[in-house]
Design a protein around this nucleic acid. Structure first.
Lengths: 298, 298
DNA sequence: GGAGCGCTGTATCGTATGTTACGTATTTTG
DNA sequence: CAAAATACGTAACATACGATACAGCGCTCC
């Protein structure tokens, strides 16, 4: 239980929650998320906006808070009243005291943060973060730079495709790349459809494939044919490497293991975003007039 | 590029100090220690007490500040006036903006630290990792549990949709959810197409929307109509909250700022994966025979 | 379909807060 | 040492902020 030192504070017990040791509520943010379910729509909006940029909005005036949340002032006041505060200033003091505790001992914050909740979220998040660090650790700058150069070299076309679960990543990447450069195509729909697109592919072109296990035969066959036609393949796969790696010019092996029934594509996603950013920067550096034209269109 | 939207703050240049590049004053604390020498006794006491418990005292009222410093109210006001602020509220806003910068982007801290590998990838990765930690820090177990319960409660249908860049996330989530339970639909194609699907939606149904800035009008309109039909909305958005938050039952605010020309959806992606995993686990726990049947099919 | 309840916004009110004017004290300077 | 200038606090003022009463609306439950 936290005890606040600064500022003539009122001893509060956060309502029933703290009584009888039913639950341990140590911050207002927790208090809110604990009760947000039992709130009417307007007050919930207030709660959400507060959580979204916690705790700054709460330090501003009621008018600003209400404007940010898109509700009226009384709703904000009812909201803080429901949290157990007598009035708005008292609520603000509590937020300030909380800030004080955080700011004065940054050590305690990082110590308490890793797993404040024994819940099921933390392990998942931790594993994901680890996956990313590991993925990038095995990824050299040289390797990324080569891929970026290839993707930004606009003498050929870029095709993207993914598997059952990874196709959204291909779409995501295509959506961005198609903006900064022409001739970017996402291959969607049925197998026979993108099969036929092979005719358009040649030596100058790049094929970006996402394929994690269970590896899809159709993709492997597609990659093989493309490879035979001289298409350069950039493969996003997991650490066990899709068979497509045999045909790939560049292979990005992401970690996918998480405590879940599913594999995680998050690491690959981040690599994709990194490439998107790097390609964009590269094209800007090249002074591509397309980029300048885009600025104008916006 | 990072820009904070909250709190219409005034662009100040901290008086002469910032002009002509004589000195680089980036925080009010520096500004104070820069000028504390040229202050009269009373104001110096004010300055010292502010520094001593920076910046909390400055967020309280003039009366409290003056009491803590052992001076009178006008002295406090003269003090902030000497720092170059027009009035006390403006001074407080500046302090709050500073706090916002500290709290909301731990990225700035890690960015300034010497990166393990000097490559160009690192800042991007670090920012992304920070975004995820921040996103989850503002996300309570309770909140996630509520959403999971809703998504796993199979008395209604689940619809997913996203914006220009986030629709792949909706697809990714739909691809997984559709396997562990029936009645999961991703809304694709033209606006008029999913517009018509509104007919199928009712009180028991859930609509998962991905919308980060720049927020799309079509999505907002769609969400509003769905909301009017009683559909419960789960919103994935950025920290500035899409206008859809007004209609949403649950709001997940992810951090999107990265050193890139594009915003990052990686944090939202990880939240999505977390939910996918949790929903799957929930359904397993419920002993849904669908899951067992799936095992057999494999 | 009607009655009751609960939620929300508008408008008003009282007050706490920041602000300013003025007189006294303290320091500085010739 | 005298006189002026600067600094500081007391007290009155005005604004803007939080609080409250009330009415309209939608929702739920008979």
């Amino acid at each position: 239980m936290i005890s606040y030192s600064l500022s003539g504070f009122v001893k509060r017990d956060f309502g029933k929650a703290a009584k009888g040791g039913e639950k341990m509520i140590s911050s207002i943010a927790e208090l809110i998320s604990d009760r947000i379910g039992a709130m009417p729509a307007g007050e919930r909006r207030a709660a959400q906006t507060l959580i979204a940029s916690y705790p700054l909005i709460g330090l501003k005036t009621v008018a600003e808070f209400s404007a940010a949340a898109g509700v009226s002032s009384p709703t904000i006041l009812r909201f803080v009243a429901r949290l157990g505060f007598q009035n708005y200033p008292e609520f603000q003091s509590a937020l300030q005291d909380e800030l004080a505790a955080q700011l004065q001992s940054p050590a305690s914050r990082t110590l308490n943060q890793p797993s404040p909740n024994g819940g099921a979220v933390s392990p998942m998040l931790e594993a994901t973060l680890d996956n990313m660090r590991e993925t990038f650790r095995h990824l050299s700058d040289k390797q990324l730079a080569d891929i970026v150069a290839k993707l930004a070299d606009r003498r050929g076309k870029t095709f993207l495709i993914g598997g059952r679960f990874t196709d959204p990543l291909a779409r995501y990447m295509a959506a961005h790349l198609a903006i900064v450069q022409p001739n970017v195509f996402h291959l969607a729909g049925q197998e026979s459809v993108w099969r036929d697109r092979l005719i358009d592919m040649g030596k100058r072109d790049v094929l970006v494939i996402f394929d994690i296990r269970r590896y899809q035969d159709s993709l492997v066959r597609f990659a093989e044919t493309a490879h035979q036609r001289g298409v350069q393949i950039v493969l996003f796969t997991d650490q066990w490497l899709s068979p497509i790696a045999r045909f790939a010019r560049h292979v990005i092996a992401g970690r996918t293991a998480v405590p879940s029934a599913w594999d995680s594509s998050a690491a690959l996603f981040v690599v994709a975003e990194t490439l998107i950013g790097a390609v964009t920067r590269q094209l800007e550096a090249d002074g591509a007039k397309r980029i300048r034209e885009l600025e104008g269109l916006r």
